[in-house]
């Protein structure tokens, strides 16, 4: 069974400047959570700090009552597309197969069943016809779907996605959000770094709104309000009112 996820007092600084300052929140399992804020707000940094991928000044992440370090194999992380070497000699199906590595442990090779499972995950994102393509030959949206398939292959309970919707086509975006919803319905916890304000209400149940400091965290209806948004974006959010009416 999945458990709640808690970040407490997370602070990170880069060369003297504090990028994430004392951020804390808790979310129950079965949530689809957007991490929202302007450029340079420290959204990706917060995510990486939670996962222990970069050095923190302070703070900790807990899953239930355990430190995140003890449950690493339950976590799937999808990096920003720009962080991947798309010329790497690897084809689509082998990329998805990487998702089975964490649970294999040392010295074990992926079995036939693992390969079949990877293909199954590839089908879920509708990319089975591209199984033998080199990953650089795909469009941005297709690449993102392949990396989501890799995360699915991990059979994780906690999913961390860094800007999955940047620079991708509409149909890929629909496929991805559909899968994230299914994960949520299955009781998984999904965190997504996001910066496109137009779809916030239709995509997420919960939000973490930040601009270096935490502005607010909780249900969308509570967080996604003009007062909060103006504080986060440090400018009047008039366009924001239209959006709220539209939703």
């Amino acid at each position: 069974m999945t458990e709640s996820i808690t970040a407490s007092n997370i602070s990170v600084s880069y060369s003297g400047k504090q990028v994430v300052s004392n951020v804390s929140f808790t979310f129950e399992p079965g949530s689809l959570i957007g991490i929202l804020g302007p450029n340079g707000a420290g959204k990706s940094t917060l995510m990486k700090a939670m996962l222990g991928l970069i050095k923190k000044n302070s703070g900790a992440t807990q899953i239930g009552s355990e430190s995140i370090d003890k449950v690493r194999k339950l976590i799937a992380y999808v990096p920003q597309r720009s962080n991947i070497d798309w010329n790497f000699p690897i084809v689509v199906k082998d990329t998805v197969l990487l998702g089975t590595y964490p649970k294999l442990g040392l010295f074990h090779r992926p079995s036939k069943a693992d390969k079949a499972w990877a293909m199954e995950c590839l089908k879920q994102v509708g990319m089975q016809d591209f199984a033998d393509r080199q990953i650089g030959e795909l469009s941005g949206g297709q690449q993102q779907r392949v990396f989501l398939a890799r995360a699915l292959a991990q059979k994780a309970d906690y999913f961390f996605l860094d800007e999955p919707f940047v620079g991708i086509d509409v149909s890929s975006e629909e496929v991805i959000i559909g899968i994230l919803r299914k994960l949520k319905d299955a009781g998984k916890t999904v965190l997504v770094v996001h910066h496109d304000l137009s779809k916030v209400k239709s995509y997420f149940d919960d939000l973490i709104l930040m601009n270096n400091v935490l502005i607010d965290a909780g249900p969308v209806e509570q967080v996604f309000r003009e007062k909060n948004m103006t504080r986060a974006y440090e400018r009047p959010m008039t366009m924001f009112d239209d959006l709220e009416v539209q939703m």
């Binding site: 990486k48 996962l51 222990g52 991928l53 370090d69 690493r72 194999k73 976590i75 992380y77 990096p79 962080n83 991947i84 070497d85 790497f88 690897i90 990487l98 590595y101 964490p102 294999l104 040392l106 010295f107 090779r109 991990q154 961390f160």
Partner: peptide
Amino acid sequence: ALFFKELLISSFDETMAAAYG
């Protein structure tokens, strides 16, 4: 030969490798 899997994933996606420990 023994650590091919680990060499592959850490060369391709170091962040994922670190994320799973």
